[in-house]
Simulated scan of single mutants.
Amino acid sequence: MKKRILACVLTMTLILMLLVGCISGKASTKTSDMFEYIGYSSETSSEIVYDTETKVMYAISEVAYNRGTMTLLVDENGKPKLWEE
């Protein structure tokens, strides 16, 4: 009987520890403050965002084999493209 109670307590503790790590909302808040969504490019199947501090623009891939890949957007001179409001 003691072994069963100990096993239940250990299992519940492990599950609780795993859930606490997944619930933390700090990363999602940081990401939403860091980048601002501009729009979607159907030619490249990617979302266009810009960094709120530097105004540098990026494309985030939506294609299945490289989903989430961020690519720096550059102008005709090779300099980072900046968001102008």
Score class of each variant (00 low, 15 high):
residue 2 K to W: 03
residue 2 K to Y: 07
residue 3 K to G: 11
residue 4 R to G: 04
residue 4 R to D: 01
residue 6 L to G: 04
residue 8 C to L: 14
residue 8 C to P: 00
residue 8 C to A: 12
residue 9 V to G: 10
residue 10 L to R: 00
residue 11 T to I: 02
residue 12 M to Y: 00
residue 12 M to I: 13
residue 13 T to A: 15
residue 14 L to K: 05
residue 14 L to M: 11
residue 14 L to Q: 00
residue 15 I to L: 09
residue 18 L to S: 12
residue 18 L to A: 14
residue 18 L to N: 13
residue 18 L to D: 03
residue 19 L to G: 14
residue 21 G to I: 03
residue 22 C to K: 12
residue 23 I to Q: 06
residue 23 I to V: 11
residue 24 S to C: 09
residue 25 G to E: 13
residue 25 G to S: 13
residue 25 G to N: 11
residue 25 G to Y: 11
residue 26 K to V: 03
residue 26 K to L: 05
residue 28 S to M: 13
residue 28 S to N: 12
residue 28 S to V: 15
residue 29 T to L: 15
residue 29 T to C: 10
residue 29 T to F: 08
residue 30 K to E: 13
residue 31 T to C: 04
residue 31 T to W: 13
residue 32 S to W: 03
residue 32 S to N: 09
residue 32 S to M: 10
residue 33 D to G: 08
residue 33 D to C: 07
residue 34 M to W: 05
residue 35 F to W: 06
residue 36 E to I: 01
residue 36 E to Y: 06
residue 37 Y to L: 14
residue 37 Y to M: 13
residue 37 Y to I: 07
residue 38 I to W: 02
residue 39 G to T: 01
residue 40 Y to P: 06
residue 42 S to H: 04
residue 42 S to L: 05
residue 43 E to G: 04
residue 45 S to V: 08
residue 47 E to L: 15
residue 47 E to G: 14
residue 48 I to Q: 02
residue 48 I to V: 15
residue 48 I to C: 10
residue 49 V to D: 02
residue 49 V to C: 05
residue 50 Y to V: 00
residue 51 D to M: 05
residue 51 D to L: 03
residue 51 D to Y: 04
residue 52 T to F: 08
residue 52 T to G: 11
residue 53 E to R: 13
residue 53 E to F: 14
residue 53 E to I: 10
residue 53 E to M: 15
residue 53 E to S: 15
residue 54 T to N: 05
residue 54 T to I: 05
residue 55 K to N: 11
residue 56 V to T: 14
residue 56 V to G: 01
residue 57 M to K: 12
residue 58 Y to M: 06
residue 58 Y to V: 03
residue 59 A to T: 00
residue 59 A to Y: 02
residue 60 I to E: 05
residue 60 I to N: 01
residue 60 I to A: 04
residue 60 I to V: 15
residue 61 S to C: 13
residue 61 S to Y: 04
residue 61 S to W: 01
residue 63 V to E: 14
residue 64 A to F: 09
residue 65 Y to C: 04
residue 65 Y to D: 12
residue 65 Y to S: 13
residue 65 Y to F: 08
residue 66 N to K: 14
residue 66 N to S: 13
residue 67 R to M: 08
residue 67 R to I: 12
residue 69 T to H: 14
residue 70 M to H: 12
residue 70 M to Y: 15
residue 72 L to R: 07
residue 72 L to T: 03
residue 72 L to C: 03
residue 72 L to K: 07
residue 72 L to D: 02
residue 73 L to A: 05
residue 73 L to H: 08
residue 74 V to P: 04
residue 74 V to W: 06
residue 75 D to Q: 10
residue 76 E to F: 00
residue 76 E to S: 10
residue 76 E to K: 11
residue 77 N to M: 08
residue 77 N to W: 11
residue 77 N to V: 05
residue 78 G to Y: 09
residue 78 G to C: 12
residue 78 G to A: 07
residue 79 K to Y: 06
residue 80 P to Y: 03
residue 80 P to K: 00
residue 81 K to T: 09
residue 82 L to A: 06
residue 83 W to Y: 15
residue 84 E to K: 09
residue 84 E to H: 01
residue 85 E to P: 07
residue 85 E to G: 11
residue 85 E to R: 14
